[in-house]
Write a protein that binds this DNA or RNA. Structure first.
Lengths: 346, 346
DNA sequence: CCCCCGATTGACAACGTTGTCTAGAGGCTA
DNA sequence: TAGCCTCTAGACAACGTTGTCAATCGGGGG
């Protein structure tokens, strides 16, 4: 780029800089910077001249340069499993609102539940020097983050804890919620209850299974291995698991679905069967009250999780340095009908 | 920051730079740059020394500086109405996937359907020098974008066209889809059909209303003003509108809901009424098939819209400069039951 | 034995902004 | 009127990287 192409006749794709504005307004570079940033010490007359030049040239401050100079990017990264998953919508939005209230932008991406992709994404965000990270982890080893955290990138894990490192985390009460769900079914007379959950490498799946087992044990009920199925939330897999439990010689009379995707598939499967089967799902979802029977769920509060996580992040960024902190968000059982169906024998 | 604090004993919050790596490896700065970027012309032995230094220091390239130098940020901005709205989930994800395949990150934010906030957000993204923008507009005047587009920021509008400027747009066939929906109801015997839609300043709401009116006119049916209600999608407003239409002396026998939020509220209202009322909704939604009756919808394809928009964006970024291009994505009527209910008189 | 060539390497400027420091103008006090 | 202080303004370096260019080295051909 030649100097002549700059300032006088701008070419397509070239933006005016403060230098150009300064030249046009007949002032120094720093004076433009002062006007742009609303710093004091500029005569009203000078300011007017600069403003006119800014408007005439269509100048817009280059935040890349500003970031480089100031060291803070005023942006935070959010890594979650799938941007398209409705469960993460409110969480995403809540994080965004908090970021916005702190003047920060949000960069986000999906890990697609792939630890490698999670790491790539996180490190790309670190290279951008985001001020902080909110991570819904896919992997279970986050030692790769240690240098970043040491270097000052605040990090908060949500929904699932970090693996192999000690970091802030905001989690649902998965264990307690699962206990409540199963206890609810037991209270309605069920003794053979199936659990279909997510892959066991996922922390929430393990915790919910633990809640299931604990509630069953607390009621003195045995658990047949055939009643427990952990794996992908692929509809085919879930459908097969549910069908197997329902067609067994001693079929389950109730299902506890480990997350909202499992619940949706379970609703479809149960709708096709003659005999009514009770169902409680972990995670609330829109329209759960419109399905017949309406679906009883253990509701999490994803918006609150997002708000809490982002709040924690910015407290850290503001220099309030505590030891890593783990926060647990309570769940709430919402009885709507499907969980109150009594057991029926063939 | 003193030079002694750098390179030898790093402090918390300070990251090593290429200069530090170079010093430690006993090579020049540019050689480190070459290794980091995988450029040719480095001896295996030198490369090894540099790699060791990188690992030892926990160096990570500062992309802010890189961006400043190279002029491309490898990031695109996505502005939509609400990150938490399930309709935008697949769109968001599709844009992200395309961005990822081009090595770009996604910065996104919600306009909350507020034109001022949209503009703030868009200009903040421009200040970050995103390479391109995908915008679901809230406002109807986008002249503020003209200098940015001239400066080379590629811009694609999705779901709704830009206002007052000529820009790429990817839209659903709102008019045709609405026509199909209403014609479907007419074919099932309805003559008094209500339309509850979004605020009239929103392009899609106007187009869908136009489709409604056209279909009615094509069947030679009059449209009573009391059958049409445009406004916010707030449940209270929608409920009131639906109730008024259904309680009128000449009540409507079918409802056409202008978007998924309206549809959901309509389902709730209709579920409370003794007399069955037909319903077709614009936008598909998860579980529409599980509600009883299952909901007939005009389905859009938000993932395809996102893919198309992002594809267009990157084609522009790759220098394929066409005149602004408008693409229309077809809709598809999915009959599930609620749209096939015949008219019933009191 | 000298020269040329390619390969490797590093010095230096530039990207556009902000922090620091200094210059100069003008007003006030003694 | 000299001296000091305040207020405005600009020169300059720095942020950490990459592009350009020149220097150095070793080897092969004449």
């Amino acid at each position: 780029m030649t100097d002549t192409a700059r300032g006088t006749s701008r070419r397509y794709g070239t933006r005016p800089t403060m230098k150009d504005v300064a030249a046009r307004a007949g002032v120094g570079l720093k004076t433009v910077s002062r006007v742009v940033n609303g710093e004091p010490g500029v005569t009203p007359d000078t300011e007017r001249r600069v403003q006119e030049a800014i408007t005439a040239l269509g100048f817009r401050r280059n935040d890349s340069a500003r970031i480089l100079r100031k060291g803070r990017t005023a942006s935070i990264g959010l890594v979650l499993e799938d941007l398209a998953d409705p469960f993460y919508g409110p969480l995403n939005r809540a994080v965004e609102e908090v970021a916005r209230s702190h003047g920060a932008l949000l960069i986000n991406g999906s890990s697609a539940e792939d630890p490698v992709r999670e790491q790539e994404l996180v490190l790309a965000l670190c290279a951008r020097r985001v001020d902080g990270l909110v991570i819904i982890p896919a992997g279970d080893d986050h030692r790769y983050l240690e240098p970043e955290i040491t270097a000052g990138i605040a990090t908060v894990f949500v929904d699932r804890p970090a693996g192999q490192i000690d970091a802030d985390a905001v989690l649902s009460d998965n264990f307690g919620g699962a206990q409540d769900a199963v206890a609810h079914l037991i209270a309605h007379g069920h003794r053979r209850i199936g659990f279909i959950g997510d892959q066991p490498r996922i922390h929430t799946a393990r915790e919910r299974l633990r809640g299931y087992r604990t509630a069953m044990a607390a009621a003195g009920l045995p658990v047949d291995d055939a009643w427990v199925s952990l794996g992908s939330t692929d509809p085919g897999r879930v459908r097969a698991a549910a069908t197997a439990m329902l067609d067994a010689p001693q079929p389950v009379t109730a299902l506890f679905a480990g997350n909202n995707r499992v619940t949706v598939t379970a609703v479809r499967v149960l709708g096709e069967r003659p005999r009514p089967v009770a169902l409680v799902g972990f995670d609330d979802f829109e329209l759960a009250d419109l399905v017949r029977p309406a679906i009883t769920v253990v509701a999490q509060d994803p918006a609150r999780m997002g708000r809490t996580a982002a709040g924690l992040l910015f407290r850290r960024l503001d220099g309030i340095i505590d030891p890593p902190h783990r926060e647990e968000i309570p769940t709430r059982l919402i009885a709507r009908g499907s969980g109150e169906i009594p057991p029926t024998e063939d």
